[in-house]
Write a protein that binds this DNA or RNA. Structure first.
Lengths: 266, 266
DNA sequence: CGCTGCTTTGAACAACTTCAACTTCTGTGG
DNA sequence: CCACAGAAGTTGAAGTTGTTCAAAGCAGCG
């Protein structure tokens, strides 16, 4: 994930940045995951026209802050971000991680302002899609509207999956499901699904999964002891996907007995 | 919530049912919460035309099953439903409760089939909105499209709120937030926000909040002891909203000390 | 080199779950 | 209309899981 950009921003900065910024939708590798899906020709150019390529964000830069007025939705082009909300006692709660091709800001359409903040986890570039223009364009292009609805629906679906996770599962099931989810998303983006770098800290993961950092750390160690993964800081290798899936699938209250039962079922 | 319909289905059944079914969008009390918002005149008639009023569901009737093909989204007209997904070990996980004016099925648009089932918690009537027709109509009516996007965005936002709850909060904070959420939703629908009937069982609540039934029951008793609410089975009276809000707001790891801190802050 | 922030590990503690018994409610059939 | 069975809700005691607190290990960086 953090390959390309980090290496070339050092020398011949401007040129490379421009190159990165200028990729048109129809040349973008995220084509099929993103809004342009099923759109082509002049229609795609119209979409391309309303999209603004923003200057890359550095690690810890904010894409938008909590409460800022909603004007655009964003698509991650490369790199990654986390979204988080402040909580009453001044802590933050991580609500999501966003990989290339994923949309940000959909939760702000209804209210008109962003209920969460978005911060880059590494060098990250995004496309900005001004919402009024997008709305106008969807009136012209039914397929674009359809794809927008699809993507919003997917977001709802994914959130519900996570709710399931947070509501019922044990710490090991949560971490396991998290790793598998990241793995799948890398795969869909053409990266390796069995070996990757996590751009977020253990703290962010713990926060996201509703666990204490210590618990997450202990789970990482246990997964390694059990030969499920290899984890060298942020560098993760999935070594036994099947067992990880079993652990992630097992929900609520898994005692040793139920653990075996569930494995039989799967 | 369960007033009107339950009383009159006993006698002169047909007539009353028809009456309930025939209310047009522009006469519906949910007008402002529902898709018709900001739409009027002939435009509203067009929307009205594509909406089918379904025959009321009895308690425990399914509106749709898991995996059934997605064809329509639904709006609750009266009564209430729960949505739930099956989990690997054959249990069910409640993913939401739906009150009048709320949409169901938005999570199915992306996949083409329903990832969860919807079951009526009491006598319930819904409007069915065939999705292809709705999509077509949104092309004609920008305000309708806008409202659809708003409602989907709201769903995403609400789900994230719940994730926050499930991720970080203690049992008392979860139940407290749940009660306040229901209370608010009743208020928005013109019912009392301080006194209402819960249509769902303790079991459903526990399941939804990711807690054991026993824990929920204990919390109900404690809230009553503390004079926060009165709970006579399903009949709830909110007696001290302020303190409930404080409890709901307090997140993660509330020891006696942090409890006091948070109260000071609020 | 020594600072700082992130990660890991250990031990005590708290919260919630589990199990089991009991009460209350609901509705169905005699 | 009552009796009874089953469902739903409540309560207590014991057991787990995950949190908290404390401290040490490790990488990155001026």
């Amino acid at each position: 994930m953090q390959q390309k950009i980090s290496s070339d921003t050092t020398r011949k900065k401007k040129v490379v940045d421009l190159h990165v910024i200028k990729v048109a939708c129809n040349e973008c590798s995220l084509h099929q995951l993103c809004l342009p899906r099923s759109i082509s020709g002049t229609d795609l150019e119209k979409l391309d026209d309303i999209i603004e390529r923003k200057k890359p964000l550095k690690r810890n830069d904010h894409l938008f802050q909590v409460g800022s007025t909603f004007q655009s939705i964003y698509v991650v082009r490369s790199g990654s971000l986390k979204t988080y909300s402040p909580t009453v006692d001044g802590q933050e709660q991580v609500t999501g991680f966003h990989l290339p091709g994923e949309l940000l800001g959909l939760d702000a359409i209804g209210k008109g302002h962003h209920p969460c903040a978005a911060k880059a986890l590494e060098m990250t570039s995004v496309c900005e899609v001004p919402f009024v223009n997008l709305e106008k364009l969807t009136q012209e292009l039914p397929t674009l509207q359809h794809q927008l609805l699809r993507l919003m629906s997917k977001e709802i679906f994914d959130d519900q999956e996570l709710m399931l996770l947070l509501g019922k599962k044990t710490a090991e099931a949560r971490l396991s499901a998290f790793l598998l989810s990241i793995s799948l998303r890398f795969k869909q983006r053409g990266f390796s699904c069995s070996e990757f770098y996590l751009s977020m800290s253990r703290n962010d993961i713990a926060n996201y999964l509703g666990l204490a950092v210590e618990t997450v750390s202990r789970m990482f160690t246990r997964f390694q002891e059990d030969g499920l993964i290899s984890a060298e800081r942020k560098h993760i290798i999935i070594k036994n996907r099947d067992d990880l899936q079993k652990i992630a699938g097992i929900n609520e209250y898994c005692t040793d007995q139920t653990k075996k039962d569930s494995q039989a079922v799967l």
